[in-house]
């Protein structure tokens, strides 16, 4: 594999879409090519950075309650406490 082929597969590999054999060939190439190795490393870091910093945990407790309430309204008796009727009753 030459640099051109290695770069053609760059994003498939980074995005986890490349086949086993493609990954193997790329790995062989970057072991002997510093420039391609550096590029692969940077693109992988970039992707991880976006995932880590772009991913936030939204506050959705209220929304969850609201949706649960709406499901209860659509289907009364399908959720909530009615699922577990008290054995004492």
């Amino acid at each position: 594999m030459n640099c051109r082929d290695a770069l053609r597969l760059l994003f498939d590999v980074v995005d986890n879409e490349a086949s086993e054999s493609e990954i193997k060939k790329v790995r062989e190439h970057i072991q002997s090519c510093e420039k391609c190795a550096a590029r692969y490393e940077m693109e992988q870091k970039f992707k991880k950075c976006i995932e880590k910093k772009g991913k936030f945990s939204p506050e959705c407790e209220k929304l969850r309650d609201k949706i649960t309430q709406q499901l209860d309204d659509i289907d009364p008796g399908s959720g909530g406490a009615d699922l577990f009727p008290s054995p004492l009753n």
């Binding site: 499901l71 289907d75 399908s78």
Partner: peptide
């Protein structure tokens, strides 16, 4: 309601 979903439907959805 006529088309009320069974309880398992709601449980699976949850």
């Amino acid at each position: 309601m006529a088309d009320r979903k069974p309880i398992v439907y709601r449980q699976r959805f949850e």
